[in-house]
Design a protein around this nucleic acid. Structure first.
Lengths: 183, 183
DNA sequence: CCTCGCATGTAACACGTTACATGATTCA
DNA sequence: TGAATCATGTAACGTGTTACATGCGAGG
């Protein structure tokens, strides 16, 4: 019976359910929160969120309330004391795994097999995409829920700085390639 | 019959098989190359590499040579013309998806529910881990295979700068939290 | 000769995405 | 009243990790 160790997504859900007010939230609400705040370093799809909410309910970490209207289902969830404890011990763990899969950098790595002009073009393309990503992060607004919280602000700062670094690196790399092409 | 579009891992394999010399490589060799060069932005396990090599063989993108010694299997692969063409068209694609899952940042995001002292401790812990990551990237050496290639060098530079940025951000965040704690 | 690390691989499982289905609400 | 979009979910599929199995070679 013993339930599997809660996944990453489980903890994100618990985190978003443990705000000051503890406003009950639906799966849809949680997905929106993720997409509008942490999407630049963590993603989750409905296909993970809804099943996970059921598992968390079964484990007693959240409690659902049925708020169906007519033929349309709707369940909102709030965190339990047990859920809060689980979240807390997860927060204190010291293993902070980072997983990354960056297709753009991969293509740059093998770009030695392309022509000099194509290489530079790839880098420009990558730069353009990162500029767009930066704009998205800059557009994130901390809603009323996060009011007074420091962490969301710090993390947006992180994301902005990170994307700026990537853009600068692209510029340097392009300059370097162009110098080589001249020589 | 029509084969599924080759995955990410397939292209990484093709990339590492398409160096100047085209030295045939085994699955083990490829895994080593990945771990010792692009591990900070792309990972792959044997469980992906070996089956993928078989699929690539079936698709005619690589050719395997049996080099078994006694009861011990060993197959080395080299890229075919068709594989080279596939790699090239993948390199030129313009969709450069980035996937990231960063547990450390996630924990920082929800650290508002911890005490001020615990918060700072989390950030110090994260900083320490990123320092270790930086050391790993700095230790990467471009082997004889990559000699004269510009891209591996540029990417190591990318990784070093990225980790330095993260460490700086941790320092700033810690300073910020400590100032708040005093006030 | 025994053990340990290298090298090669597979099978079972966990994780995540995509495509789809369905009902409610809004607005032209 | 029809189309678009919001809201809720599921099923099928593809991706990626872990744990295991097996044989070889080197060193005590």
């Amino acid at each position: 019976m013993n339930a599997a160790r809660p996944s990453n997504v489980a903890h994100v859900i618990l985190g978003f359910l443990s705000t000051k007010e503890d406003t009950p939230k639906s799966g849809y609400d949680i997905k929106q929160l993720i997409d509008k705040s942490v999407c630049f370093f963590f993603a989750a799809s409905y296909g993970q969120i809804y099943p996970e909410l059921k598992k968390l309910t079964a484990a007693g970490l959240v409690e659902g309330t049925d708020e169906a209207t007519g033929g349309r289902a709707r369940t909102t969830y709030k965190i339990t004391e047990s859920g809060r404890a689980t979240l807390r011990s997860w927060l204190l763990e010291d293993e902070n795994r980072v997983e990354m899969r960056d297709q753009g950098l991969l293509r740059i790595l093998f770009a030695d097999t392309l022509s000099p002009a194509e290489r530079v073009e790839k880098l420009r393309q990558l730069r353009g995409q990162r500029v767009a990503d930066l704009a998205e992060v800059e557009a994130i607004e901390i809603g009323p829920e996060g009011d007074g919280l420091l962490m969301p602000e710090l993390l947006i700062d992180y994301g902005v700085g990170m994307h700026r670094y990537e853009i600068d690196w692209c510029d340097r790399a392009i300059a370097r390639l162009e110098k080589d092409a001249d020589a």
